[in-house]
Amino acid sequence: MIGYILRRLLEVIPTVLLVLTLVFFALRIMPGDPAIAALGEFATPDAIARFREKLGLNQPLYMQYFGFIAQSLTADFGTSMNNGAPIGDLLGQALPYTISLALAATSIGIVIGLPLGAMTAVHRDGKLDAFGRLFALIGFSLPDFYFGILLLLVFSLHLDWFPMLGGGKGFFDQLHHLVLPAITLGLVMAAFTMRLTRSSLLEVLKRDYVRTARGKGVAERWVIFKHALRNALIPVTTGMGIYLLTTLSGTITVELVFSRPGLGTLLIGGVSARDYTLVQAGLVVFAFFVVVVNLLTDLLCAAIDPRITLR
């Protein structure tokens, strides 16, 4: 088990290296550089040249690239090219907000989506099913930033139940700030989970052993249903793992709408300031998330179903 995890984590290294390379060059294709972004409209060519020299941007590209890779391997993210702040600190401040948002949204997704999906599958074609499917359709169709704006207008501006800006200080305040963004992202997650649960449960329920049990009586049916749910959970877990990554991406617009600190805010700002070091580090963290989420998904599937072996 531990060997498996270690091997999986080792496999991450080439992926992360490729991400690093891609990001490194993609950033440098964009017009403008950190010096131009940082020095502003009054900058003279001389001042820009000096700033570039200080950041090492005057070196040949391959030198910069190898220097950067070497630095990355020692997990040294360096300092922001825009304002000199240590990247580690910037990420340390931002990450908890993004992670808590993604987790809260996922929790909302599970709490609403799983039971709703199970119930609609059992009461197939009933009123509840119709409601569930409509809910999923709408959840899928409402753009997250639009939904966020609506929530903000109603629950923050007019009703004044929730704060409008930032991420909050201290546990309760942070929780208070988390509610609306989490609902914004959680809706899609719930719609997704509901639909996935419903279809995979229906898939299992049509199998022979369940059909037989249905004919026999309530008690056995209940046992089998539990069994069926367990089986149905595997695709749901895998699907949600994949969707969690989409949710992570969704944090960008939601953070923007709610002026919330986080990785998305950090990266969007970084791109506009051509803060190479910041964007590079931020994307590596994102890539790392992707890998970890995939790994956790596989581990979770194995835990749910002992028949799955980890190779």
């Binding site: 207008l153 923050s156 501006l157 409008m164 800006l165 709610f258 002026s259 700002g269």
Partner: peptide, 19 residues
């Protein structure tokens, strides 16, 4: 000094009295 690049957020925060 709060950094609020989006006009909407800045305006709403001002209207609400947060800034």
């Amino acid at each position: 000094v709060l950094f609020l690049p989006e006009t909407a957020a800045r305006t709403l925060a001002f209207v609400k009295g947060d800034v």
